[in-house]
């Protein structure tokens, strides 16, 4: 009986995880469509292929935990609980966007779910996340701060300065390196003297681990350990998650052809995190083909709704131009 309950709970959780990953995927496919139509402008970086990382890690957080990330932020924002509507409206540059149309794709923020951006300078948010960890400890809290970054950020001074302080002061931050093997067109082995990114944690006496980023369960297991360590012991972790982006670096970059081959891309596509989970669930019969169809239909409607919402939301009025440069001091 107990084991039946557990397996029911597991099945429900697995469905949630699958739902979370498919939602990100379909949302971003829609983003690509909108971009092609000129409804979205500027730099826009898709997360497609990496969804098991956001879903795996953020599904473990409490509401009062914190998240910071890079410009490749759509998936993480949605998994963290921001509405697809507010994200799509932001991408469309509309007033109902999460950042009131002032940030765009790279600067998604939502203070209601402690989503602290969306940052465009590679590595720069890593000290900020360290500061959030500092603030948690300053107040004696037991929240955790998750800091996502690309593998190229680990060659940047901000990363090293941060890890040194987090190791020195024991701060409750989980640094997640999403190693998708490329920083724009530069392969990781052409940029880093160390191939195993997680080992950089040793330099700063920070617990570290590496995990398969296409397997959402593996991600969750590794992340749970890191989150516990932060919550219980104020101890940081450097977690390297090995993944792959299926699209170009940004909308102007072809998925393959210059710095990586089509064959390589095809090889990695075989380990699509969504397909892997779906297959596994179909095999252990926790999911049926009609479940998938139902989920897809519901998600398609959600995504279409976000598009409609964004399209109907007004552009920021001209008065908004000069708003939000300074706040009025109230204290």
């Amino acid at each position: 009986m107990a084991s039946k309950k557990k397996s029911d709970a597991d099945a429900a959780l697995h469905k949630e995880l699958l739902h979370s990953m498919i939602l990100q995927r379909r949302f971003e496919e829609k983003v690509a469509e909108a971009y092609a139509l000129g409804k979205i402008g500027g730099f826009c970086h898709l997360y497609i292929g990496q969804e098991a990382v956001s879903t795996g890690i953020l599904s473990l957080l409490r509401d009062d935990d914190y998240v910071l990330t890079t410009y490749r932020d759509h998936g993480q924002a949605i998994v963290r609980g921001m509405s697809p509507r507010s994200v799509m409206a932001e991408l469309f540059g509309r007033i109902d966007g999460c950042s009131r149309g002032k940030g765009g794709s790279m600067h998604l923020f939502d203070r209601h779910v402690n989503f602290l951006g969306g940052h465009g300078i590679v590595g720069a948010h890593v000290p900020m996340a360290t500061g959030v960890g500092f603030a948690i400890k300053y107040r004696g809290g037991d929240q955790v701060c998750i800091c996502f970054m690309g593998e190229a950020a680990v060659n940047n001074g901000a990363f090293h300065e941060s890890l040194n302080m987090a190791g020195l002061w024991r701060l409750p931050v989980v640094y997640v390196i999403e190693n998708n093997r490329y920083g724009m067109g530069t392969a990781v082995d052409r940029a880093s003297s160390i191939k195993d990114m997680y080992k950089r944690g040793d330099t700063y006496s920070i617990a570290n681990a590496v995990v398969d980023g296409q397997d959402v369960f593996a991600v969750r297991d590794a992340a749970q350990e890191a989150i516990d360590r932060a919550r219980k012991d104020y101890a940081p972790t450097l977690l390297e998650v090995r993944t792959y982006r299926f699209m170009g670096h940004s909308m102007s970059d072809a998925a393959s052809g210059t710095y990586r081959t089509k064959d390589e891309l095809e090889e990695y596509r075989k380990r699509d995190p969504i397909t892997l989970l779906e297959r596994r669930m179909l095999a252990d019969k926790t999911l049926s083909k009609s479940d998938v169809a139902g989920m897809e239909a519901e998600i398609a409607a959600t995504v279409q709704d976000s598009w409609d919402f964004a399209e109907n939301s007004p552009e920021p009025p001209l008065e908004a131009l000069y708003e939000d440069v300074y706040v009025e001091t109230t204290t």
Binding site: Y66, L68, L116, A124, H125, V126, P127, M128, A129, T130, G131, V132, G133, F134, A135, I136, K137, Y138, G157, A158, E161, S162, N164, M165, L168
Partner: peptide
């Protein structure tokens, strides 16, 4: 020492720590 914090020589790092801490209300 929680409120008067000696840092390593790490200007970029500790300034960013300040920014992050201000984002969450310090």
């Amino acid at each position: 020492e929680m409120r008067v914090v000696d840092t390593p020589i790490t200007e970029l790092g500790f300034t960013g720590v300040g920014v992050g801490s201000a984002m969450v209300g310090l």
